[in-house]
Amino acid sequence: MMLIHCPHCGPRAQEEFTYERTRDSVVQLDQAPDVAMAALYSRTNPRGEENEIWRHTLGCRGWLELRRDRMSHAIVAVRPLGVQVLP
């Protein structure tokens, strides 16, 4: 089970987190329908590093963007997403 360093909470076990999707499959509502559908359904599946969106569901409930190696499961970087209330 991966250890994910939540920028708000510190290192926590993977079971506290929920995987959402890859960053490049986030569809903006002003994108053309065919572009949006391609992003949703015709995804890349790189062998190696990828940006992913996770949520610390059973922790601070914050949204995170991880850069993660999908072969070794190594987490290269974590940054918080969304509204940052505290500096």
């Binding site: 959402e20 903006q28 949520r55 949204w63 997403l81 969304g82 509204v83």
Partner: peptide
């Protein structure tokens, strides 16, 4: 709740 949080924080911060 998850959907609204997603919209609020990831789609339209």
């Amino acid at each position: 709740a998850q959907h609204l949080s997603w919209l609020r924080n990831v789609m339209a911060p």
